[in-house]
Design a protein around this nucleic acid. Sequence first.
RNA 1: GCGGGAGUGCCAGAGCGGAAAAUGGGCUAGGCUUAGGACCUAGUGACUUAGUGUCUACGCAGGUUCAAAUCCUGUCUCCCGCACCA
Length: 877
Amino acid sequence: MIKFNKIDKKWQEKWEKYKVFKVKEDTKKKKYFCLEMFPYPSSTSLHMGHSRNYAIGDVYARFKRLKGFNVLYPMGFDAFGLPAENAAIKIGIHPKEYTEKSVKNFTNQLNALGNSYDWSRLVKTCDKDYYRWNQWLFLKFLENGLVERKKAPVNWCNSCGTVLANEQVEDGECWRCHNKVEVKALEQWFLKITKYADELLNDIGKLKGWPEKIRIMQDNWIGRSEGTLVDFKLKDSKDEKIQVFTTRVDTLWGVTFMVYAPEHPRVMELVKGTKYEDKVKKFIDKVVLEDRYSRADEDKEKEGMFTGRYAINPVNNEIIPIYIANFVLPDYGTGVVMAVPAHDQRDFDFAKKYKIPIKVVITPDDYELDAEKMIRAFVNDGKIVNSDEKFNGSRNREAIEEIVDYLEEMGYGKRTVQYKLRDWLISRQRYWGTPIPMIKCEDCGYVPVNEEDLPIELPLDVKFTGKGNPLLTNKSFIKTKCPKCGNDAERETDTMDTFFDSSWYFLRYCDPKNKEKMFDKRSVEYWMPVDQYIGGAEHAVLHLLYARFFVKAMGDMGMLHFDEPFTKLFTQGILYKDGAKMSKSKGNVVSQDEMIEKYGVDTVRIFLLGLAHPSKTVEWEEKGIEASYRFLNRVYNLKEREKSENNIYDKHLISKVNKLIKELEENIEKFNYNIALIKIMEFVNYLSKVKRNVSIEIYDEAFKKFLIMFSCFAPHICEELYENHNDGYISLANWPKCDENKIDLKLEKEEDFISNIMSDVNAVLKLVKIKEPKKLKLYTADNWKYELYEKFKNTESRDFKEVMEKVLVKGHEKDIAKLIPMLLKKGVDDITLDRKTEIKLLKNNLRDLEKEFKLKIEVLEEDNGKALPFKPAILVE
RNA sequence: GCGGGAGUGCCAGAGCGGAAAAUGGGCUAGGCUUAGGACCUAGUGACUUAGUGUCUACGCAGGUUCAAAUCCUGUCUCCCGCACCA
């Protein structure tokens, strides 16, 4: 067995030294942008899960390169983020240092994978040359009305005096001091992604190259629903109104109470000065502050309380009590709902608990609903009852439109569209991120930094105490002048969510070193959009939605010429071990380094890609890697040409190669790498089998073509084997052309046929071993089908007749093979067949059998003076 | 609850309307080898045998078809997203 490590190194060094994968715009060539989601660098070792992901992309990039595309395949690092900052707090290492180390570590490991990245285009989001464009873009968004400042809740740890990210909250407690986390409202920066809600939703239809699943997830995430805003009057007030959102106006007459989300700003106003004030306040504290983390739990008991106030239903003037309750979301709809206990399960549960009346307004066709006896809400469709005369008796679904028309006419409400999508909160009260380029002036309010002053560099001199935002510890950073009035002012210390960084990094790859601009428009026009994006499904909504939003917003600002960033998306499956996702925190990782050292990179790549379809979740099993290793050894040994004895398999081999080209093209294109590898293995098995029976030129040609194709999967070994016979890199070779005319299906079928004969002969010989020797003969000739048919069409045996019918009608050659032993059994001794080449096989095979069964088998080659076809016979005595 | 996907041999995993079912692995037997590894050959659903003979299979139950693992309906189990969205 050969150790491949030396070969791996040799080629990785060459690729790097001669910049083999460096690309530039070339209008003469068709471009292909193949992109993997860039990683967050960490100091740990890559594990096999990572290796699999990156191998998936590399195979694709290599494939497209061989196919003649100008392939942009870059790599970079999503280098800002919380873990670096946590490390600073925990072990006292500066985030910059931590990140640099991690980047170096990841770079080495990615290189060890042999991926064909154009490293000259490396992008790191923590470089000021990168994040200055975050800031610049932020200002552009601001100019275009896409930035907004408003209050939003944050996780707050009182003892640390700091804001916590969701990841820093463990079971509702602070990750450091384990104090109960509270919720606090802070003024923060938002991007108005909701402006694009409709466009983002509609254009999902354009994403034909995306997995259905991801598209559905985005669809649900945006969550458009059409409904109606209905105005209820607030009792005991001067014309104050309460607006609710509903999709079920057909149940409007069944409303028996109303519910506010506890944290709704208006709640306190409602109870102000009443005896309910204190109780309500307490309840709000309990629900909002303590239960924030269990609020999403559906099984949670519905809790609420009466506010002492009432509302008036506009359609029937009924007076209904107003409650607050934990099941109403403050940020969906208007934060208030009209409750129809008879026809909504949540409302029903709540009404039962607090003894609120239930009023049936929709009834099923086949029985009467009795509000007293109901044990759950009736949520199906039916007939309207107990409502306005105009609508009683109508089908509820069909009546909705009319009811809305009626409400609009009467001025009680209006049609509206709601989205679940929220504006994007980009403020982070953290250090390791892009400073938001705003200045707070006492007189002028928030003022944007002047463009010329960019970048606002993140200062390195800060203290990591774990309390508050570290940026607050650098006074000289904070202190500045107002760009508007020139007075003393303070810088914003919030930094940007790192999803901001990753929402446009693919654009920077097109022109990564540009100092003047975010990117050169022509470069982006050449390379974008990304043709194939590859990454994890966990980014289905956030990253993938934000990136789409950025592209649309930038397009509207005239910066881009396309409106969707990723034409095709591939989401890879997860690698499991011991039933859990491979991850450091679970302690079930298999290190990449270790495996590469033991078997070589190509082995690792082949093994990981051959396991199953790349989109599937698979369980890691080390056993199989040995097989991949053996396989590569076999490939390696194919370079030793043996003296060719004859060339009877030339035609076959040519046919096989062409078939392989076609199969690989189809399968790699569709990411069916596992199938492609199987085809490759079959071919290798075949090649080693017929090696001695093909002419050298044909063999070399076939092997070369094979190597080029196989280099997608095993680039190092293929480079090495290619080097002996060719100039240049196999990585830059041309994918062989498939000559369909050379694919000879008949030859293929014949091969099946031969192998069948062989097993038949085996079977016969087995029989012969036990029984008395019998004299048998097998002849070959060209028109076997008809000869056989002619010979047996008049026999009495039904078996023969049936099979022969089939043969002539459907051409099942296999049946002929099946026939032979039967014929032999019946004492037939001259069967004519049409192959010449199989004789070799038969001969070889028979030698073994001869030995095995101690039989004397003779193969007669009757030459007849002519060369071929000859008429051999098997003689078993 | 909603949405998506999957259930095939000892295992992983192909096939997705026409013969037990690719390819690996594992296992069995034989060859090669000082031995081990590697490599080569054959076998591997069950029952049998003189036999290419019989039976049974693609979660379970029905249906369409000359023909179904493959299409349809119902059902069970598992995985993965989202989730009190009015």
